[in-house]
């Protein structure tokens, strides 16, 4: 009986520890960036990827980026005050095309590059003292001879699911850059903003 009780307590402890591990497991933002980057790099390097058509490649990378970026926040920050003028279906549509634009730009940047010369130093992650859970991950991208500082700005909305909402290349925020463009479109209708983006993506 005594043994059984001991066994029960340890089982109880084990279950508790196990459950808390699932609930509180912290993937650090830096690990998250690293995993995402390694996955994308291995997709790009694979021979099956190289044999695909441009459209198929775009779709594959788009799917991957959609899981590492929070395109809703990306779109919100890029549109700035215009965001409020968009209906919720327009918001979704804008996010969809904006995520495709990011994918296409990303792919065109990487296409034809010697991917074996690409290496990333993960420098540091700084957790921001903000209401929302945010962290800036500092990296240094080595592309053969050229070194570029890249910062991934991340947010964790759910318990520990880190998503990218902005990228700073040599200190220049991509989202702030788009925001400046959209600021000048405060009088342009959401329909036109979306169709303009759509044309850009499908070009």
């Amino acid at each position: 009986m005594k043994i059984k009780k001991k066994y029960l307590i340890s089982a109880y402890l084990l279950i508790f520890v196990f459950i808390s591990m699932i609930c509180f497991a912290e993937t650090s933002p830096m690990t998250s960036v690293q995993e995402n980057f390694d996955e994308i790099l291995s997709i790009l390097k694979s021979s099956s990827f190289k044999n695909k058509t441009e459209k198929e490649q775009q779709n594959e990378i788009h799917a991957k980026l959609s899981s590492s970026f929070d395109f809703k926040i990306v779109s919100m920050l890029a549109l700035g005050h215009n965001w409020k003028r968009f209906s919720s279906s327009q918001k979704d549509e804008f996010s969809k095309y904006f995520s495709k634009l990011v994918t296409n730009v990303y792919l065109s940047k990487i296409r034809g590059k010697d991917l074996n010369g690409i290496k990333v130093d993960y420098v540091k992650a700084i957790n921001l003292k903000t209401k929302s859970k945010r962290s800036d991950v500092y990296t240094l991208l080595h592309n053969n001879d050229v070194k570029t500082p890249v910062v991934y700005r991340m947010m964790s909305k759910e318990s520990n699911n880190w998503k990218i909402y902005d990228i700073l290349i040599e200190g220049v925020s991509l989202i702030a850059n788009y925001r400046d463009t959209y600021k000048q479109k405060s009088k342009v209708s959401p329909e036109i903003i979306i169709s303009e983006l759509k044309t850009k993506v499908e070009k």
């Binding site: 940047k109 040599e170 200190g171 400046d180 000048q184 303009e196």
Partner: peptide, 28 residues
């Protein structure tokens, strides 16, 4: 291809270049 990337990605390349320049100088 940095400049081409900017052109490919930008909705309005003039504003994108201007903003990129100003941001970069402020960071420096």
């Amino acid at each position: 291809d940095d400049y081409n990337t900017l052109r490919k990605g930008a909705i309005d390349p003039y504003t994108a270049l201007k903003n990129g320049y100003i941001q970069q100088r402020q960071v420096k």
